[in-house]
């Protein structure tokens, strides 16, 4: 029983980090109806940026986010303006190809700069843990989870307590109507893409601090992130949060009570069952967005 509780706690802690990584993906889909296949590559890029700052400048992983998040924000805005905005027709389908190309470019550049060797982020708190009752918790898992909570709460406040957030939500709900009340939807789209990519800097650091990675690690990540936003409901932030926690808890518990070999399989079987019963995902809407 203790093993199961431990698996659930670990699932919640890592699920929070996945929610952070998936939040940008689902937000971008909500506003622009594009599927950013490069989200996994952005996460790995974020991890490498933290790695480079720690290795070369001895900057703490969390402090380094003050540099990497703004850098990734600007990169995201530039990519949206240069590669996504020009797509005028079949935006959803073409965005898959365009962002896949972006992912390949990122992977190529990272391989040239850092080689394909596996690396790990290093900091004292990555290897240390503390005890609560009968459970040992790793500091990095707790810190990563708290970072996710803080950033997701900040994202929530941005969306629901600011005028910019109103314009994002309006663009998500009805793009044409948003334009007709004076919202610059293209600007909102660029900033939203930037925010989505900036969040991957934090997600990447938390991911890299708990998992060894190389430039090719983005493929497994993007498949998991896409699964999360499909299960949660495309465009739903709350759905992404629930799906992330659900995925990691189910996988961890399955690994403990049955076998790690079956952990992903059990989750995907459940995913199929849920999507048969509720094709729009947990918190998604069947009706498409009005244009």
């Amino acid at each position: 029983m203790e093993l199961i509780i431990d698996a659930i706690i670990t699932g919640i802690l890592t699920g929070g980090v996945y929610a952070l990584m998936a939040s940008g993906l689902t937000l971008v889909f909500g506003v622009m109806e594009i599927i950013n296949i490069a989200q996994g590559a952005f996460v790995i890029l974020g991890a490498y940026l933290s790695y480079a700052l720690a290795q070369h400048f001895h900057i703490d992983l969390f402090l380094g986010l003050l540099i990497t998040m703004p850098v990734m924000f600007v990169l995201g805005v530039l990519i949206q303006v240069l590669f996504i905005r020009p797509l005028k027709r079949d935006r959803t389908m073409l965005s898959i190809l365009v962002t896949f190309a972006v992912a390949l470019i990122i992977e190529g550049v990272l391989t040239i700069l850092f080689t394909a060797n596996i690396v790990t982020l290093k900091a004292p708190y990555i290897t240390q843990s503390f005890r609560i009752g009968n459970f040992y918790l790793s500091y990095i898992y707790v810190y990563g989870f708290l970072l996710s909570v803080v950033l997701l709460a900040g994202l929530y406040l941005l969306l629901y307590r600011t005028k910019f957030g109103q314009s994002v939500r309006a663009s998500m709900l009805n793009r044409t109507a948003a334009q007709l009340i004076g919202i610059d939807v293209e600007r909102v789209s660029a900033l939203t893409f930037g925010i989505g990519v900036a969040l991957t800097a934090a997600g990447g650091m938390a991911f890299g601090a708990t998992t060894a990675f190389n430039p090719g690690s983005s493929y497994d990540l993007i498949s998991r992130l896409l699964t999360i936003i499909v299960l949660g409901g495309m465009g739903s932030l709350s759905g992404a949060l629930i799906a992330s926690l659900g995925m990691l808890i189910i996988e961890n518990v399955t690994a403990v009570v049955w076998s790690p070999t079956w952990s992903s399989t059990v989750f995907f079987v459940l995913l199929v069952v849920i999507l048969i019963l509720r094709p729009q995902g947990l918190l998604g809407k069947l009706e498409g967005r009005k244009q």
Binding site: R169, A170, L173, N174, T176, A177, L180, K290
Partner: peptide, 13 residues
């Protein structure tokens, strides 16, 4: 100002 043909309210607001 234009009021478009299809319902243009932000339904979740």
């Amino acid at each position: 100002v234009q009021v478009p043909q299809n319902h243009s309210l932000f339904t979740e607001m």
